[in-house]
Amino acid sequence: MSWLKKQSVLIPLDFSELSYEAISPAKEFVAAETSLTLIHVLTPLHPADPAAMWNTLNDHQRKDKVKDFLAQKLGEMGYKEVKIQVAIGDPSTEIIDCAKEIAADLIVLPSHGHKGVSRFLLGSVAERVVRLSPCPVLVLK
């Protein structure tokens, strides 16, 4: 059955419990953990953030810190061989770009079910990823 397995699966993480829960169903689609890529998208630093103002923290350092953090956290959860990516910018755009870059053949992500104002303001990342994705998307409910 291994010909049914996916070669490259992308899982966006936003540090919420729900997003970590997407890893286990995603794992069922691949033969090995190394085929899983996890991505976290950071927002750009505000120019008046004291760290930006004094240039004590740059984008490169922020990415490294998140990579270390995720590697440790995922290691504790038992996922030691997954690939970790960190990007900075608009979440849906970065997720799509990353999917193209790693030639993903599946994206797995949870739908948060935001309600009210924030739902109205920007819609959901999941929605936009579904619309623009180059590959099939599995939205967990």
Partner: peptide
Amino acid sequence: ISWSYYGQQAWAFLFGDRTV
């Protein structure tokens, strides 16, 4: 510029980083 940072932090606290 400084106050837009304060306001943005408050906004992000309410609606999340994505809608800033």
